[in-house]
Design a protein around this nucleic acid. Structure first.
Lengths: 167, 167
DNA sequence: ATAAAGTCTATAAATTTAATAGACTAATTA
DNA sequence: TAATTAGTCTATTAAATTTATAGACTTTAT
């Protein structure tokens, strides 16, 4: 990144490219947008993939795979044939960003040694129990997961209402 | 990720591969390890790249580029020739993980729209000011940056001492 | 002088992300 | 039961990024 600084500045100014190293993937972003959109469709009427795709500006074929994954994980359900589409299977309160992010981007952690399900030791680490770097990243991970667990679809919609009132 | 679950489970069990989507890059990890190592070398005697490389298990050629970047950013200084090497230019209190991570992995944020220096709007976003998703990720980002700013090299070493006392 | 040690340029292998294409299957309804 | 709608599955590809590796070059201490 450093070696490319000159180019990067240019990119941001002209084409607005952005580094993605620590950011969520487009897949996760699309998934979250689609879920919030489905949560906003009152009733549990199925919504067509093509409708979600148009409304949220997500490439349809890409979205198909994403929704299928969300279905396999039990968050969404679908109905085939005419009048079919996708709908929330879980309640908006049950679906939180931590789970969605983990589904598509893997563990929420800056280091493998502070993950729960994907734990991996650092080779160079002499004593993990007393590693100061790990201690910091463990704290960050715990706080992040806490905040993302609280951020369920209902909460996200509440926040939007609140923000609209302020403005 | 989901489509590969079978393989992934196998990988974790057999070869312990890990997804890296939201994790810091090896470059950043190497940089942090090298910095903590240099901070532990009392006096400001230059330490050879080869010594850091061996002690921290970092490919030497890769480390050379990393240390050079840290030098360009003003964190380290170097001395050439015999008896040369790298040493901290800033005090251990001044060097924090937020700055180091930003240097190599770019902005600390899950979405471009909650970054400061690399801000980018989401195309699909109708009203950013009232976006509930953005509101969540902004909160996460602020907390994360706060914790990482506090995590300077001195603090990391303090934590190690504290952890050693507990054990 | 010469040996030690950092610097610079270029390139390559491996992995991952993001996206596309097309055939196939299931369900509804006329 | 045929036609249509809409989700499902498999394969492939393009682009970008990460993680290195190689080798020539420059500077400095003794």
């Amino acid at each position: 990144m450093i070696a490319k600084y000159g180019i990067i500045i240019k990119k941001i100014a002209i084409k607005s490219d952005i580094f993605v190293t620590l950011m969520i993937s487009k897949k996760t972003k699309y998934a979250i947008n689609a879920l919030v959109y489905l949560a906003k469709q009152d009733e549990r009427q199925p919504t067509r993939i093509s409708d979600v795709s148009k409304a949220q500006n997500i490439p349809q074929k890409f979205l198909e795979a994403i929704l299928l994954d969300l279905k396999k994980s039990g968050i969404l359900a679908s109905k085939k044939g005419k009048g079919g589409g996708y709908y929330l299977l879980q309640s908006p309160e049950e679906v939180n960003l931590a789970d969605v992010m983990r589904l598509f981007d893997g563990p929420i952690a800056f280091l493998p040694c502070v993950t729960y399900k994907y734990y991996e030791r650092c080779e160079e680490c002499k004593d993990e129990e007393t590693c100061g770097i790990r201690d910091v990243f463990l704290q960050v991970r715990n706080k992040t997961v806490e905040l993302l667990k609280d951020a369920n679809l209902a909460e996200i919609m509440h926040r939007e209402s609140r923000l609209k009132k302020i403005l």
